[in-house]
Design a binder for these strands. Structure first.
Lengths: 212, 212, 212, 212
DNA sequence: CATGAATGAGGGTTCATTCAT
DNA sequence: TATGAATGAACCCTCATTCAT
């Protein structure tokens, strides 16, 4: 759990207490939700006075945002910006399926080490406009363009049907998300053969969007 | 909006005030969430005194449950119990695709006339064990057995690959849910060609699970 | 003390609890000041739950305003609007001194039965823009015009020196206020011969502004 | 502004930081009042750490007292102790009016260069017993005796009516204070002909208390 | 002497719930 | 049955003050 925070990028150096607060907040909020978690609980679990929370995070909501934003940023940015697009065009992934595999694998591992954070993100997305905004921006600026480029690329190679990109994305994304939600949130305790599941998911997707 | 309630089964005869309260609660909670909606707001919009709410619903949470349970019950029960299974075996649906079409169509229409209720269900599912229990029971008692029977039936007819039922369900359900969530919740305002989308979704699913 | 509230005009009928709250707030705030009085103290002295205060007064500050505004309104309005001007021109007051006497006497009695309220007004005027606005408006719309008319009237009769009205007002008002503040706030416990003091004050004022 | 502090007597040698704190506190408190000014604000404007304030001033209230006491001391003491009485008896002021003029002029200039301090004094006088005590002592020990002597002196010369000293003081002091409050606090921005106003004020006072 | 992170008591406010009418 | 005034626990947040560095 403690490395969960480390995997995300936080701008400033954080004091030990700050980390403790963040960890406690993530645990509690992911278990019980934002509105069912009081700042005094967070303080208690963090081993800190309640006032200390507000020294580091102006508001309870600010704390939530500070928890959730890096997840959005990292989830959308890291993969795409640095490796994804470049490697597509360097022909690292011969087939769309290979790309899909690398993509899902990567996001899968990210999700795996950030389950509580992702739970919080999904749970609170509905209620906090600030999060929605950040989410939409990340998607439209990072994820969507990258996907678009990749789809165009594989279309030209005849690996994808000639459907509107929009449609293809709507086939791919929910399938992946649906799998991950089932895997990590709905039935996290079940025995999973992750490798097999990922391949299965890819098969489904390719059945729907793959070239004839 | 007003018929939304009528489409669901409520055990007892409801007084006009009770209906007014339910309607107000559904509107407000689906817009702003359970924790951001106060009972006084609900009372005000329902044109009722605050105390009246608690005459009909023991607690605020009881009100939520009374809103959400019929959705679960109906969503899972109605179709399967009365029409689905029977008609499958009466060979009404020659191919799995036909069944899938009827199934999605039916659930689609249900969702369409119950968007606010479904929003509430999805949003609050995460936070209220009572809802989770009801949901799980409905799924394991109603949906899962019905699906199982149908899958077995079409497997024997060679219309479905020889995958574990569990796996097939995991292909079908998230695809359908993913489509509906996108359609009704994430992008409800977009221009949708629903018929085409449903067929698209079926194609995807069949690509993944259909017999060779 | 209990009639203090009755002397002021409150728009709506007030419940007993509301009156109790108002009385407690007036007592405490006039003794210790707004910022040194907590809502829990007010509730306790009023024999009421803390929440009850906020049912009747949206905010602690709202409570303050509701206390102070009627003082301003009454202090400025009552006398002038209804009796003052009309009677001046009906020549009820033969000499300016007579008017001054009636005026001071009237305000003196008002002050006498509203000492705590006036203390609050004077103490908090400095810190709350809302009060300042109300005060300025009352003065410029009610008090100042009335004084102006009266002064013009007595100037024509040769009872007042030919000084700018502005100047005359600046002689009269601080003298009266200064007397009252000394009388009721700075040294309320001293033995006062009020009648003599009022006459004394008039003499001083007339010495400064009276016609030769 | 910076010389404001210099005009007052502070017992101990002050470090630069101490002066900075005092200046910041005076500015902020005179603008927003004692209770609306936090020690962290003062620290920030003074360019000092929060803890530093408490190194020099035991408590926040101690800081207030240290700000306000010199004003009281100086206002009451300086003039009277050193120049006033002695010069009265050296017949420097032939007439009571001359004394009054010198007196008002002197206090006027003092006020002029200490507006923020005087604002603080007036605003907080009501709420802090410590300040009230200091104020009363200063008045009864310094101002009152000096005035008494002077009044007796001019009474014997027939320049003042045979009223109780107490009464005469109550005519003089509020008039002067009333003028200054109007001048510096209520309407500081208006165009003032100070010399004329002072003379006007003297005329009023003499009209009230001057010998026949 | 100076710092600033940490404290924790206390503040104002909200709101689900109760109950006399 | 319906009301709505009253409740009081719980909440988020502020801030003067302390103390290890």
């Amino acid at each position: 759990m403690s490395d969960m925070i480390d995997t995300l990028r936080h701008d400033e150096k954080m004091t030990p207490k700050q980390i403790e607060i963040l960890k406690a907040a993530i645990e509690l909020i992911s278990e019980k939700g934002y509105y069912n978690t009081s700042t005094s609980e967070i303080a208690e679990r963090a081993g800190v006075a309640e006032g200390t929370i507000f020294r580091h995070y102006r508001t309870k909501k600010d704390l939530l945002i500070k928890i959730v934003k890096p997840v959005i940023t990292d989830f959308s940015a890291s993969f795409f910006a640095e490796q994804f697009v470049h490697q597509v065009f360097r022909e690292k992934y011969g087939h769309f399926e290979d790309l899909l595999y690398a993509f899902i694998k990567n996001r899968f591992e990210f999700a795996q080490s950030n389950v509580p954070l992702i739970k919080i993100l999904l749970q609170e997305l509905a209620f906090h406009p600030e999060i929605q905004t950040a989410y939409k921006r990340a998607f439209s600026e990072k994820v969507y363009p990258a996907l678009n480029q990749a789809i165009d690329f594989y279309k030209q190679k005849g690996e994808l049907r000639d459907l509107p990109n929009e449609t293809i994305i709507r086939m791919v994304v929910p399938s992946v998300l649906g799998f991950m939600m089932t895997r990590f949130i709905l039935k996290p305790d079940q025995n999973w053969d992750d490798e097999a599941e990922i391949k299965q998911t890819i098969t489904v997707i390719m059945g729907g969007v793959g070239g004839t």
